[in-house]
Simulated assay, not measured.
Amino acid sequence: MSLYFRYLLILFKSQMQYRTSFWLLTFGQFFIPLAVFAGLYFLFEQFGQIKGWQFFEVALCFAVIHMAFSISECFARGFDSFSSLIINGEFDRLLVRPRNSVLQVLGSKFEFTRFGRLVQSMIVLIWATSNLMIDWNLMRILTLCLMILSGVLIFAGIYILAATMCFWTVQGLEIANIFTDGGREMAQYPLNIYHKWVVKFFTYVIPFGTVNYLPLLYLLGKNEGNDWLYMIMPVLGSLFIFPCLIVWSIGVRHYRSTGS
């Protein structure tokens, strides 16, 4: 982890060499999800509720998934832009270093400007929770934190899977955006507003349902059955990262050097 934080510090210093550009990009990133949230607000202004979900309940769901996405986009950006390492032959250099390839790819790129998105999502989170009658206790606070952490790991897992495909395709596949950007847009609403096959896919295959829906029911007091089952759902969703790492290791073993 000390090496990882060294990567962070070096890249942060390099990005701060152009401070005006950095702050302008961060400021711009603040307004990107704000426009999406404005659309959400006007939707509820028009219809009042969606399948029994009120505005602030969906706003909480929105805040959690966008916080998870912004954090993963910041810290897992190396996998999102991994195709450039393959094309330029720089991945060969990573492989000869005595450190794990996952750590080195994570440390190859950070997008600190994405903190603008994170700040906006935090504001929405505070606004939503202050307008919801939630009986906050230690377990609910822990569940909320696990929801965000699980979302980060799920998005990071998708980035890893997309990066692994570059070992065979060289170029990154745009289809991966269906599950990153598309997954973010889909998961900003509770899953039960969609068709059943969508709910099943995004619960058992790509487990966004363990982040934005099942534990959300517990937070809002809408769950039926054992509270503990709903509380540990984010932990179960976090396990998604492990098969992604296994697929990555398979891809690394099948990688053929550029020879340059």
Results as ranks from 00 to 15, higher is better:
L236S: 03
I148R: 02
L11F: 08
K200N: 09
N177I: 02
M139E: 14
N212W: 10
E57M: 09
P207E: 07
Q17T: 12
P98V: 06
L125E: 04
Q54K: 13
N100G: 10
F91R: 03
G116V: 04
I178C: 07
A38E: 04
H254F: 08
P215T: 08
A76Q: 06
A163I: 05
L214A: 11
L219Q: 09
L161R: 03
F5Y: 11
S84D: 14
G39V: 09
A128R: 00
I148Y: 05
L146A: 13
A163D: 08
Q104T: 10
E57N: 07
G52L: 12
A187N: 12
F55Q: 02
V205R: 02
E73R: 03
R140Y: 06
M186C: 01
E174A: 14
F167D: 04
L245T: 05
V170Q: 11
K13V: 10
N131R: 13
E111P: 00
L173F: 01
V235Y: 04
S83Q: 15
M165Y: 10
V105S: 02
K109Q: 11
L214Y: 15
G28K: 04
L161K: 05
G39P: 00
F242N: 00
T203Y: 10
F22W: 07
M233F: 13
G183N: 06
W127E: 02
T26A: 08
F240M: 03
N137F: 02
L144T: 09
H195R: 13
I10C: 00
G116M: 03
E45K: 13
E224P: 00
K13M: 07
I134P: 03
F91S: 01
I246Q: 10
I154F: 11
F110P: 00
Q17S: 14
G259H: 05
I32P: 00
S130D: 11
W127F: 15
V105Q: 02
F75R: 03
L236F: 14
Y4M: 11
N100H: 14
F5Q: 03
V205M: 04
V199Y: 12
F55E: 04
L106S: 08
C74K: 01
L3A: 12
V102F: 14
L95T: 08
L144Q: 07
N131E: 11
I175S: 13
F47S: 06
S121R: 00
P33I: 13
E224W: 06
L34Y: 13
S2D: 07
Y213R: 01
I158G: 00
N212T: 15
F242W: 09
T164A: 12
K196T: 11
G78E: 06
Y218W: 12
L217A: 01
